[in-house]
């Protein structure tokens, strides 16, 4: 076991980790931040996406030790301290961009990374960017719509309620 320390959602957090401890295990089991999920073991579903030093990564495919000293953001840090949802979270609720909620943390974190790089993505760009985030419930329609809305774009072009 080695002690590792990282900044998680703005707070310094430390804990013991083995060499093999994955970042997602450290977040969930050691720090109790269970909002980040594990949906596969081949690095494809994206339920585990968090930001490390401002970049979206799959926390199931990164060792906790690799994040020693890093600045980590998770779904738990996205809303304001008073609980007010951020623009992406609010758009997901407004446009029904989630159903069972399991892929949602990863979707929100990927969406945040996308909008940072590309503040006004097209529908095609959003769909392409979500290549590594699998949702089994929504058919993606309302996720795409929510991300467009969060970027301040008109979502009338995307049909349905």
């Amino acid at each position: 076991m080695t002690k590792i320390t990282m900044t998680v959602n703005g707070k310094t957090r430390s804990g013991d980790a083995e060499g093999r401890t994955l970042l997602v295990q450290f977040l969930r089991d050691t720090l109790g931040l269970t909002g980040t999920h594990v949906g596969c073991d081949t690095s494809q579903c994206g339920a585990c996406v968090v930001h490390v030093n401002g970049k979206a990564v799959k926390s199931c495919t990164m060792l906790a030790a690799e994040a020693d000293g890093a600045d980590v953001s998770t779904i738990e840090g996205q809303a304001a301290p008073d609980g007010t949802l951020n623009a992406i979270q609010q758009a997901f609720q407004d446009h029904h961009g989630l159903q069972c909620g399991f892929c949602t943390p990863g979707m929100v974190m990927s969406a945040a990374a996308l909008l940072k790089d590309n503040p006004k993505p097209t529908e095609t760009e959003i769909r392409h960017y979500l290549e590594g985030n699998i949702c089994r419930c929504t058919g993606y329609h309302n996720i795409v719509k929510a991300i467009m809305a969060a970027s301040g774009q008109d979502v009338g072009a995307i049909a349905a309620e």
């Binding site: 990564v57 495919t61 290549e131 590594g132």
Partner: peptide, 9 residues
């Protein structure tokens, strides 16, 4: 290659 999160690592 892969997806954005994979490309970051």
């Amino acid at each position: 290659i892969g997806d954005p999160a994979v490309r970051n690592r």
